[in-house]
Computed example of a mutant assay.
Amino acid sequence: MADTTKKQLTPEMLECMKSMRVFSLATADKKGVPNVVPVGMLFPGEDGNIWIIDNFFCKTLKNLEENPIASFYLWSPEYKAGCWQVKGKVKVYDSGADYEKAVAIAHSRMETAPAKHLVKMCIQCVYNVAPGPDAGKKVL
């Protein structure tokens, strides 16, 4: 990912994101071995990053520490206007004001959520992954 400029999701992408309940979050370890997990707490943060709350990460957290890059896709059967792959660099937090906000959000959604870490993703690129002639093309 050579482009290091922080990107923002388009209104269309954000609308799709709102219709999703579970996201597939992809990471890889330092050797490039992939890992994909379902994540229910992934959303746009107030700071322009994507916020991901770690409730049950195991290999995912280890991968993010070794290789701080992640990806997820936006697609929902309720939202048929597009499908995108989002990639970015991440930082993991276990303290601070934003972490405390993330814990409160997690507990408002699921009272027993462990909310072990806040993972912030700085979006670096977005690709169209909808079937058709534009599949695989970079859109942001």
Rank of each mutant, 00 (worst) to 15 (best):
A113T: 09
N67D: 09
G40R: 06
F56G: 12
M17W: 15
K87Q: 13
G132M: 07
C83M: 12
L9P: 05
K7Q: 15
G82S: 13
A135W: 10
M121T: 03
I69A: 08
V92Y: 07
N35H: 08
Y127G: 02
E12F: 11
A106I: 04
V36C: 11
L118N: 11
A102V: 04
V37N: 12
L61D: 09
K91M: 13
I69K: 14
K59A: 14
T5P: 01
L14D: 11
M41N: 10
S19K: 14
V33R: 07
C16V: 11
A97G: 02
A106N: 06
K18E: 15
D29Y: 07
C58W: 06
G136A: 05
K89S: 12
E100R: 13
V103P: 02
Y93L: 15
T60P: 01
D54Q: 10
E111I: 03
K80W: 10
W75P: 00
A70W: 07
T27M: 05
V90G: 03
N35K: 05
V22L: 14
G40W: 00
I69T: 07
K80L: 13
Q124I: 06
P131M: 05
T27K: 05
R21H: 13
K101L: 13
T5N: 13
G96M: 07
M41H: 10
A115P: 08
A113I: 07
V33K: 09
M17S: 14
A28S: 15
P44E: 13
K91F: 04
K62L: 10
Y73G: 09
N49K: 15
K31W: 03
S95H: 14
F57L: 02
I53L: 12
P77L: 12
T27F: 06
Y79P: 00
P133Y: 04
A106H: 02
A70E: 11
Y73A: 09
A102C: 05
A115R: 06
N67V: 03
L61A: 13
Y127L: 12
K87W: 01
P114S: 12
N49F: 12
K137C: 02
A81H: 14
L64E: 01
W75L: 01
M17P: 00
N67P: 01
H117G: 08
S71R: 00
K31D: 15
D3Y: 09
A97L: 05
P68Q: 10
K30H: 12
G96R: 04
F56L: 14
G48M: 05
E46N: 10
N67G: 03
E78C: 00
F23E: 00
L74E: 02
T10W: 09
M41D: 10
D94W: 06
P77G: 11
V22P: 00
N128M: 04
K62T: 13
K18R: 14
L64I: 09
G96V: 07
K30M: 08
L64K: 03
G45N: 04
K18P: 00
N55I: 04
P133G: 01
A97V: 10
N55S: 08
N55V: 04
T5R: 13
N55D: 15
